[in-house]
């Protein structure tokens, strides 16, 4: 594990952790390109609706606002979890992480409702280029959230079992980066897919 530095938060205390956090930031650069490419495709295909419905016809503001506020709040609570971790409180860390994951699950619930709604109004994924790219973009984000839920559960088990060590702290910090990043992506989905589509 190499040197242990006690002057920095636990998650940075080993060389290995500091490598992992840096590596994860690099990965987020790749994620920017991934979602950006989906946006580029979305903007290209948004008006190509074929015989299917248009954006304005199928978007509903209520579930979108619910999703947005749920995800914003979860981003806040995972931030609090990291803060609690730095204060060394295992219990508070786990509590905030639990709230975050519950909010994540709630977000997914609303998104599933939304997808069912799209299917009902004749906007399935095979209907037109627009519905294909819309559902793929939302679905990619949703899959990231789903993956995050499992990741978070595994992480909570480890923190509960092993306590806040340099290993678990490093993992938790990386997880928080991931979760905040999903919120950033959602902001762009909210602004440039939904609001722009309903404007």
């Amino acid at each position: 594990m190499g040197k242990v530095n006690n002057n920095v938060p636990l998650e940075y205390s080993t060389e290995e952790n500091s490598l992992k956090i840096f590596g994860f930031w690099t990965f987020l650069g790749a994620e920017i390109m991934l979602f950006g490419t989906l946006f580029a495709s979305y903007f290209t295909l948004v008006d190509r609706t074929g015989n299917g419905p248009t954006a304005a016809e199928i978007f509903e503001i209520t579930p979108v606002l619910a999703e947005t506020f749920i995800l914003l709040t979860s981003s806040f609570t995972i931030g609090l979890a990291i803060h609690a971790m730095r204060l060394g409180s295992k219990k508070a860390t786990l509590t905030f992480m639990g709230i975050t994951l519950l909010l994540g699950a709630a977000f997914l619930g609303v998104e599933i409702y939304e997808f069912v709604h799209y299917a009902h109004v004749g906007a399935g994924i095979t209907v037109s280029a627009f519905t294909s790219i819309l559902l793929t973009t939302l679905g990619t984000h949703g899959l990231h959230v789903t993956f995050g839920l499992f990741w978070g559960i595994f992480l909570m088990i480890q923190i509960a079992k092993r306590g806040l060590t340099s290993v678990t702290a490093g993992k938790a910090f990386v997880f928080s980066l991931y979760w905040h990043f999903l919120d950033v992506v959602w902001i762009f989905i909210f602004s440039f897919i939904y609001l722009k589509g309903m404007m």
């Binding site: 930031w25 987020l28 650069g29 920017i32 950006g36 490419t37 946006f39 580029a40 495709s41």
Partner: peptide
């Protein structure tokens, strides 16, 4: 890293 990524993706989106 982040600014480079954002710059490239803005370029890609506008170019596309």
């Amino acid at each position: 890293n982040i600014i480079y990524g954002i710059g490239l993706i803005v370029l890609t989106i506008l170019g596309t």
